[in-house]
Design a protein around this nucleic acid. Structure first.
Lengths: 128, 128, 128, 128
DNA sequence: GTGGTCTAGACCACC
DNA sequence: GTGGTCTAGACCACG
């Protein structure tokens, strides 16, 4: 359920963790009122240090997506899904746009880019 | 000629500088045998610390794209254009693919992604 | 009778519970020889986990304010009132002094602080 | 200039550091555009771990009081003073009010509290 | 068991 | 030199 944490891709680990959790919530893998896996559990799942997960959870808490219940765990808030769905689109869109902007500036033609994009979309979504 | 340097987008400055120079060479803005602008000059153009440019030039030299000519400056090599054109496509493609992969994993539908991509391509290349 | 338990104000819950009980005893709401409400009952009154109350009772016992009577409950000791009255003043005074010290150190003027204090005292005790 | 960090008073160290820095800025000990002492330097001044200071600086950054200048340090923002002056009053007032509320609820009389407060204010500000 | 805080020490990218 | 990130491991308060 949480693959994809990559220490070598430039994006900080704690931020990748945030993204994964947001995507999972947007996807209703966790529902409001439920508890997120504990810091230690999640750390093991994702093969990162517990402190890294703790930092991510702190971030999510600040964004109003989860809240700490003393001695119990981190609980999904009522607004979590709404926030995460917006975030999901925003985060991904941001990254796509940024990549396309670089392509544009570097003088690639619309045709070249379209070809790359269509090929990859076919490849990635074919298994559906 | 060199806009787009963004200190806040996660990609190291010196790497952004490398990219810009590679793209300019791929685009034949600089031809083999010509000199690159001096470190200081380029630093000013790009609004970046001279040390950052120096590091980028070192990187380009290591990749065989430019070579230092004693007392004169950094000269574009004969193979520069070939290398840079390959690089340009590789770098951009890599980034696009990585962004689309995240979109795929996060359960966005093919339709949603296609919509974003097409809209942005229209927007970015409309001025052509 | 026991409002004011606030999970978010930095002071541990079990300590807030201790304070409330001490203040109630100082106030003669409980007299020597009487029994405190059972752990479960008190937990419900204060909307707090029974374990938290149990810990507080343990603390109060260690301070000689209550004593456990086998199979009966926690009994108010003879010295309870004396201890609690001293405690009450000490605890409150300590907290006020600490807050004022920070105000002093942070270069607030005597006038600013006096204004805040007088306003709040008026507000809090007006219903008398 | 930065005394008063106390590991034993219940308030987290990183938060005490934040408060101290805010108070210093409110007091114009640091002006907009200036750099805060480096993480390592401040850590030594305050006798805490550099990571603790880093966390505080991150917090201040999130509140718009300082901003990170790559490779240079943490710079006081233009709005820092305004924010910190508001914060100073808010933080201190909050603490005073909270202490007085406890006094109120615990059945101390207005006279008792007034006596304590006036005595302490005299004592703390007498050296002015 | 849970999260929260703190320390120590490391490595990196940037100036 | 600077801040940013990550790890490892500890202790505490709370349920």
């Amino acid at each position: 359920m949480f693959p994809n944490i990559d220490p070598q891709n430039g994006i900080p680990l704690f931020e990748q963790v945030c993204r994964q959790v947001k995507f999972a919530i947007a996807d209703q893998a966790y529902l409001p009122g439920e508890l997120l896996p504990s810091v230690r559990e999640m750390a093991q799942k994702m093969a990162v240090n517990p402190n890294t997960v703790a930092r991510s959870y702190g971030e999510l808490q600040r964004e109003g997506i989860i809240e700490s219940v003393r001695g119990t765990g981190m609980q999904i808030t009522a607004e979590a899904r709404r926030i995460c769905q917006k975030e999901r689109v925003r985060l991904i869109q941001e990254r796509i746009v940024s990549a396309l902007q670089e392509a544009r500036f570097s003088q690639l033609t619309q045709e070249e880019v379209t070809k790359i994009v269509e090929r990859e979309i076919q490849r990635l979504w074919k298994s559906k």
